[in-house]
Structures are given as C-alpha cells and as structure tokens.
Design a protein around this nucleic acid. Sequence first.
RNA 1: GCCCGGGUGGUGGAAUUGGUAGACACGAGGGACUUAAACUCCCUUGCCCUCAAAAGCGUGCGGGUUCAAGUCCCGCCCCGGGCACCA
Length: 952
Amino acid sequence: MHKKFEHSEIERKWQQQWAADKIYATNDTTDKPKTFVLDMFPYPSGEGLHVGHPKGYIATDIYSRFKRMSGCEVLHPMGWDAFGLPAENFAIKNKVHPRVAVDKNVARFKEQLEVLGFDYDWDREINTTDPEFYKWTQWIFVQLYKKGLAYQSHEPINWCPGCQTGLANEDLESDGTCERCDSVVEKRPMRQWVLKIREYADRMLEDLDTLEWPEHIKEAQRNWIGRSEGAEIDFRLSTSDSVTVFTTRPDTLFGATYMVLAPEHELVAKNKDTISNWNEVEVYIKEAASKKEMERLDDTKEKTGVKLEGITAINPANGEAIPVYIADYVLASYGTGAIMAVPAHDERDHEFASKYEIEIRAVVRKSFGESLPDPVLRVAAGAIVHDPKTDKYLVQYSHEFEKYSFIFGGLEDGETYAEAAVRETLEETGYHTKFVRYITDETESQFYHPGKKINRFLVSRRVLLELTDDKPEEVPEEELAKQKPVWLTKDELFQKLMEVEEEAYAIDQLFNPTPFTGVGTLCNSGEFDSMTSEEAGRAITEKVGGRLTNTYKIRDWVFSRQRYWGEPFPIVHMADGTALPIAEEQLPVVLPEVEHYEPAGDGQSPLANIADWVNVTGYITEDGNFMVADTAPEGRELVEAKRETNTMPQWAGSSWYYLRYIDPHNSDALIDPEKEKRWQPVDVYVGGDHAVRHLIYARFWHKFLYDIGVVSTIEPFQRLEFLGFILAEDGRKMSKRWGNVINPDDIVKLVGADTMRVYEMFMGPFENTIAWSQDGLAGARRFLERVNGLSEHVNKSGSEAATRQLHKTIKKVAADIEDFKFNTAVSAMMMYINTAEKDCLTQAEYETFLRVLAPFAPHLTEDLWHRAGKSNSIHLEPFPEYDAKLATDTEITIGVQINGKVRGDITIAPDASEAEATSAAKTNERVASYLAEGEIKKIIYKPGKILNLIVQ
RNA sequence: GCCCGGGUGGUGGAAUUGGUAGACACGAGGGACUUAAACUCCCUUGCCCUCAAAAGCGUGCGGGUUCAAGUCCCGCCCCGGGCACCA
C-alpha cells in the first residue's frame, strides 16, 4: 500500500521553516567554489503566471540546489523587469500610477513563485523601476555618452502610430509592423538617442565562439549582426563626384557593367541639374519612398529602376564608362547605399540587367578538379542537341570510357564556341543543327587524360543546339568506333550524365539557368586573369585604391522612447543645443509625477508637459557635467537648461540587471569589484523566446562595462540553456483567448508543488515545446506517493540489486542535472523505485535516495528526512557520491548475432573472453540451431556490447 | 531562396565512441480487490502472421559504407525556428 501525503500541509510547513532559517541566503565570503545560476527575470504582467512560466525556474532551482549540495556557494536570485508599455497602458486606462500596478503584479508573481518552493535569496531581489536600481542604469548611460557611444540623431526613425513612440529596428516584425500593437510603422524624422552598438559588432561576433550556447541562438546572433567581408571601392562619376560602393566580391570588378544608387542617395538630388531625365527620376524616388515599407515584404516583385541620363561612372578596373541607375533594390541604409552591379555573377543584378538590356560580362570561371602539374590547354565547345519534335537530347557515348558526355570539339582559329559546336556536331554525329543559346559561361577543369597520357586543362563552354533536319549525313566508321551519338530523354540525361561534376553542373544549368555566383578563376580581367577569386579580390582592391572592409546588418540602437514609464535620461539641453550629463552625484534623476500618462501625440513624451521639471537651473562643473542648483559656486555661472524628456526603452534595465544581484544594496558603486570578480560570469543562464535581442543588448553593455573597468569578464553569460514552452492540452498556446490557461496555483492546490516540479521536468527534453497533460501530471504524483511509501520496503539487509541500482542512479542523476537532462534523471529515479520496492533497501540507502531526489521534490524529501529522525535540512546535506564499483554491473546481458541479425542473448561478465562468450552462446538453443547450419567463419566480439558470429 | 535544428510505437520520449531499437512514463486492453465506482496491485501492449513458438517487417523516403546503421556518407521529402532584394 502506498501512502498518500498531505502536500499542502508539508509544503507550507517547510517553506516557512526555510524562510525562517534563511537556508538559501548567499554568502559572499566563503571559500567554496561559486555558481551563479540565473533566470531571465520576468515582466510582472497583470495576468499572473501560467504553468509554462515556472518551467525554467524549476530547472534553475534544481540545478542550484544540486550545486549547493555538491559543495558550491550558489547565487540564485530573482527580480522584476517592470518598466514598459503594459504597465503604462494599464495606468492610462485605469488612471492610476503605473507604480500601483507594478507593485500589485510583483506581489502576485512573488506569491506564485513562493508556493513552488524555490530557493531564491529574496534579500537580493531587484526591480528595474526602483530609483536605487535605475540610478545605475542612468549611470551606465552617462558613461556611454562620455565615451561617445551615445549620440543624438535626427534621421528618420521607425514611428509607431499606435504606441505613439519611436522604435528600434529590432522592435519591428519582419513585415514592418509594430511587434506590440501590429500597427504599420512609419518613418518619421525625430530627434533620438542612439547607441553605437555597431562598434562592438566584431567583438560580439568573435566572442560567440567562447560561449557554451545552443548553436541556433549563436546562429541567430550571427544573422543579426550580419557581418559581410568585402571592400569599398570608389567610382568616379562624369560629374566629377566620386561614389563609394561596398562589395563582397571585388574580384568581379571587371564585370561591373553598371552601377546602382539607392533612390535616397545624396548624389542623386545633388546632380539634379545634370540628370536630363530628372522628372522621371523624381517620380521614381517619390514612389520608392512611399511604398517602401509596405512592399519590402514582397520579394517576388520585379526589380525596377531608372537610368540617370547624362551621368556615367568609370569602372576603375578597366576605365570603361558604365551607366548609373537608381533602383529600390539597393538600400540606402546598408553598406554605402550604392553598388557596383555585376550581372554575370549576382542574381539580383542579373535579373535587373536582363530587364534593362545591360551587358552581362562573365569574369569568373567555375573551376573543377584539383590543380595538376604541366597541364596542356585545350579550348573546346561542349554541345547538346535538342530535337523539338521528340523532345530528346543528343549526346555522345564513348565506348572506351563507357560514359555519356556532351559532344566536344576544339575551337579552330577565329571560331566562336557556338560555331565550333555546330561544326563538331555535324562532323561527329552527322546531324544538322543551329545555335540556340549558351548553357554556361566558360568553365575550366583539370584532369588526367588517360588516352593521351597528359594532364588536360580544359576551358569549355556548353552550348545548346537545335536539330534543323532529321536526315543526318553519313559518319565515317572510325568515328563511330570511338563514340556513337545517342538520343536521351530529359530523365535519362539526369540518370546518365550526373556522374562527372562538370557535366552535372551543365545539365542543371540547361534546365535551371542561374548566374554563377561562386568563386573560381578570373577571366576577362586583364592582368588578373587566372588568379583565384580570393587572390584577385585583394589584388584588384589594391590596384584601384579600394579598402578591404566589413559591413554589418546591425544598425545602431535607437535608444529613446517618447513614453512615460521608463528611466529618464540623465541629460540636460543647454540653450546653445549642447547636451550635458547630469553630475553623477545627483543621480538618480527620478521619474516625476505627472497628471496624464498619455503620450502627447506630437512625438513628445508626457514628461515634456511638466514645466517645473523640465526647466532647471544649475551650473557646469569642471569636468563638464551639469549640476542642478539654485545658485552657482564662485567662478561658475548659473545657467538655465531643459531636461531631456524622452525615456529609455524597456531593454535598458535588462541589459545589466544580472550584475546588480551580486551587490544589490551598494549605494556607492554599480558593483563592488571584489564581489564582481567573485561571481562573474553567470555560469548558467536560462530562458527562451526574446533571447536574441536581450542577449545582444546585454552582451553589448557588458563589453562596454568591461572596457571601462566595471566588470572583469568579456562575456556575461558563459552557458545558456534554452527553454522550451509548455502548450495547453489542446496543443495551442495557453491564452485567455482560447480559455485554456492552466494556473499553477490550481495545480499546486491539487497535487502539490513537488508533483508539478517533477512532472514539468519529466515531460521531455528541456528545450522541447510540449503540450501539458493532466494524466502525465498524475503519473508524477504516483511516483512521489511511492517515494512516500518507500520506507515500508526498508529492512536490515536490503538487496544487492537495489544497492547497485542506487549507485547507478546517483551517477546518472548527477550527470543529467549538470547537462540539463532532467527528463532522464527523473526516469532513472523511477527505475530505482521500481527495483527498491521489489527487492527492498536499507535505511542508509533510503536516506541516500532522499538526498538524490531532494533537488526535484524539496518539500517531500525534507519531510521524510525529518521523519527519518534528522534535525538539519536535507538541502544543506551533501549530494550523495556513487561507488564506481557498485555502479557497474558484474553480469551483463548482450545480444548474440548470427550474420549480423540478433538471434538471442547471453548473460556474462562484462570482461568475459571471446571464448567464454562464444561457448555461452552455443548453449543458447536458438543460437545453436543457427550454428548447426554451418561453420563459424568469423567471430566479432566487443566485450560488453555484442557477439556477432559469421556462419556459412 | 539562404542558414540552423528536427523526423523513432496510439502519445511524450529513451538509446556513450556504430553494437539486443522502443528505457521511463502516459494511454489502451485483460485480470485481482470492491455491493459498485474510484484508488491500488498484477499481466499484455511496435507492426504482421499465429492457439503458441518460430519466421518476416520496422527509427520520414531512396541508395551506399560496414560483420553490424536510429547513429556515418550521398541524394530527396516533410516539419519547426531564424534571416530574407544585406550587394
């Protein structure tokens, strides 16, 4: 009989005891090794938590408990990311201060977390809206400003008409709508504070390699930063202006047959008078500006553009004059807003050039095969003939090499590839044909020619011909003896010509022509011919006076919002327009009370309406800060200034909050350097969803703080574990809208926190998104009830099976917790219970098992621990160590295969010899019957794994 | 389109370096207990054939390497995520 347990009573009792004893308080001064375990702190919404939210917190709780039991000093804190629009919108709607809503929501969240029995050290709780916290957010901003990394910009920025505020690029959905309210975002010129995150792009990219993060998150960060390596090259215009383009392919410069400027490029309007078709150009610019945001989404739309009549550019590689276009496929905001267009080697340029009939000049040959010594050059056409009547293709079959191929023929003096192809086809196959089109540009390949015993260097171009009459000429016998013409269907081409890489490429291009965008060997490029793309890229850049450089997708971070509920900028504007930081000793600049939280609608934040607050007097200190004061000291002038009325985005506080947990009450510094060294970096950081942006911003600030000596590590989060969500039982997201939200309080009331914890960890791999199952929850409860009744199976002698199983379980659970494989850890403990119930266990083993389970089910194990006569907390006990001998079996069962198929099994010592294993196998009836059918020719024996007998 | 992950029973999922595929749990079926139900306990549970045993099939599909493939290689299909005219 398994005893039920009174979860509510037990859980309440021990939670109170733990809090009273402060058993989870973090000690800064022990000499134990440290572990900093961090959850992405929540935004305390009015909705409260559903059962999906605590999943990550359960994991960090188990991990931190395990680390504490393993002898580490653990920092496992929690706090609140409480600035931002939801609280502000709530305030507007209910006409209460956002602080009221925040305090209420925080209290509710905290209550919900506490019933789950987490081991947070609440003395270190932080809240981003607390002036003592945002004082340091402001302080970091001042440092950024002083280092020139924060600046004001008047460029058009994303404006959300719904939220009445400016947004960073990252706040937009990919279709150009606001991620919060789905409004179509507009461009509006507006004064903004911007942070130079781009200056950190290279370091953020390179240091990713030092991090133990899931590959998909690293990849998302790389995408976001979007570094392209290439060169800037200057093109002279006929107007005597010079345009700089960015290209990743300077090796293709000789193929640049036109140039494109973004419609917004400054040189377009500047040369208005030189452009003879200005009217047409102006119309295009206006259209591009108005439709851009809406139509960017549509990648199927045809490319458009207008030639700038009266202007040409000089290709610096060959001195040729090339046309200049404006087109909206070139973005003003990326690179230099201008490109050199190489239609032969870029798909977009190819499409545009085809439409506007611009020359397409190939300058890179695709190259096949390794480079060989003393190659002998041959230039040849490779022909394939299409018969439109039968829809078949004519190729050659070589008797000598037993291979199909294109019809090859060398170029004679002055011949084109097309002419050679037609002539050669007639000579070798007798068919009359005409030229249709080139299938490929020139390609080259090197290979050993067995017939001629030379290394062949073949330059060739594939040609499509069409049959013009079906009465072939007679072909000499000796030609046919070497190779014969064969007609193949399209399907047969793919079957018979895909073996040689070069032929496969040609066949692919025949049916699916695309410009060659890969790297290869240069041609049509003067002195650079026969260089590789890589060599030529550097050499050409140098010759034309270009600069090797990188460019990035990531834009500088638009950091100001025109809303109320955020950190005020510690900045004043002087009458002459300069912006000065508030003196550091006057931080924080406290968010003032306002009558209305609504945005003004004119792009100003509600703070702009508070004249008393905005207008200040003070003086400029020696080091250039602004000291708010009614009077100025000797030698200083009392001046008037206006406060900055924008506020910071919600990302500000979350970009550094993890540091404050280390030293949450320090009023003199953001963090004490000794404590920082003690605790940084975060050893394990757990979260999901918004991961990419938050992590980018936090890594940026952290690197900046490293540069100014505040932190000692180059990265904040050494290891990151990605959290998979919990769906509702119907497989949909939990949402009020669907009415499928499961509230953790109800679950705790029903089956207890321990059960919910065990269940959520057992559901599946931590990073998987899995639907909730009430039946699964009941299974977890059954497991804990069996644990509760386990003491009935205790006797003096126990059993060897249970002892061995226990040591295996200790080993498995410890390793799995370290790896965040909680599902298999729970499974191992279930297996132990199965064995222990059946075979009995000793009292010592019982107590050991309780300690293994303690991180998962802290309340029940604590209760059973005390009922076993202990007086200290189980959570301060050491995690059990396993005995390696006992964790290994003395006898194991391995499979016996006959000719690779499993036909039985044998139970032997793990280190049994081959002879022992084989003789054991012979006693197996089934195996023996197979052995009777022949002789053992070969024995493959891998001790502990498999015995495979090859019988004939 | 490009870049990352993935595809295993009715379900969630297990499976060191290739070595008995389906651990553990849920669900389902059968039985015990009970006046009855719930709870609990015991048995069965990949598919197919079968009274049963044995044989056969089986980790998205098609090939390959190997004594041996969920695992490695090549070519496809499908799903999830990220990026998307980024020069």
